[in-house]
């Protein structure tokens, strides 16, 4: 029971929800799955604006890619054909997040809005160059990376996440590694790598390190080493050698040294896996 909450409103459309947010500015919270607010009650919140009656739960393959409504739960996503994104890697990752019970509560919109540094999803979404669509009276679609580079929490005070688009990347191979105390626990470090190989050369690279313990960071220096090179042991070794220890930090779970060591292992494993998958394809 959260006694500070005095009303639960259930708008039927995004314009109605936006109007309610404006009316109760500063003391209202949106409820998708509601897990975050249930875990971390906030005293300043008096009004809950439930999004259940707004059709935000959908998964569609469109020409631009996989489009996921913000109200879609991870369970719905994993059970749908959306799990086949990244040659099925996305579905396998979804199956390893939290527990089936919590996956029935966690929404994609909630994960994007809370943007917890330990998120399993953010490095993947960012690594796939996802686009986010926000509604503030009209729709605005922007790259997810730009969204997080700005003051996104301020933006979300006057707009609602409608959907996320994960673009289709042909000739792209991806791999993901995570480490947690238990399989169902939050990751203590995760790494997502996606490479596009054209005629044996690495044409595009998108590498992200998450739960480091800060917000996910792009491994630009590593990407620079990879671009234009053939994917082999020498290139992988050179890429791993430039992974800077300054990208990771310490917390009560892991030391900085341990995290950096783990990051190099993850990067090597992911690049090797992509190399081996590429060898199978050709």
């Amino acid at each position: 029971m959260q006694p500070n909450i005095t009303d639960y409103l259930q708008p039927k459309s995004l314009p109605e929800a936006i109007a309610l947010m404006a009316t109760y500015s500063g003391r209202a919270a949106l409820v998708g799955g509601g897990l975050d607010l249930s875990w971390r009650p906030r005293q300043e919140i008096q009004i809950l604006i439930g999004l259940d009656r707004i059709p935000l739960s959908y998964i569609e393959w469109r020409p631009e890619g996989l489009v996921i409504g913000a109200g879609t739960t991870l369970r719905e996503l994993a059970d749908s054909n959306g799990g086949s994104y990244l040659n099925g890697l996305f579905g396998r990752i979804l199956d390893r997040i939290a527990t089936p019970l919590l996956r029935g509560m966690i929404t994609v919109g909630g994960a994007l809005a809370r943007a917890y540094p330990w998120s399993d999803l953010l490095p993947i979404f960012l690594g796939c160059q996802a686009h986010i669509t926000l509604f503030d009276g009209q729709d605005h679609t922007i790259p997810l990376e730009s969204f997080y580079q700005g003051s996104f929490r301020q933006l979300l005070k006057r707009s609602i996440i409608r959907e996320l688009c994960l673009p289709t990347h042909h000739q792209s191979i991806a791999a993901y590694q995570r480490f947690g105390r238990l399989q169902i626990d939050i990751p203590l470090l995760n790494q997502f790598s996606r490479l596009t190989l054209v005629e044996e050369q690495i044409e595009k690279a998108s590498l992200w390190l998450g739960a480091r313990p800060g917000f996910p960071v792009r491994l630009s220096e590593v990407e620079a080493v990879l671009l234009g090179k053939p994917l082999n042991q020498v290139t992988i070794g050179a890429a791993v050698s430039v992974l800077s220890p300054s990208l990771v930090g310490a917390d009560f779970r892991l030391s900085k040294e341990y995290r950096h060591n783990l990051a190099t292992v993850f990067l090597r494993r992911n690049l090797t896996e992509i190399w081996s998958q590429h060898a199978t394809i050709i």
């Binding site: 259930q10 409820v31 509601g34 249930s38």
Partner: peptide
């Protein structure tokens, strides 16, 4: 039809 922990579901959501 989906199993969820009822301690984390706001009651109003089941309307």
């Amino acid at each position: 039809g989906i199993p969820v922990p009822s301690c984390t579901v706001f009651a109003a959501r089941v309307e």
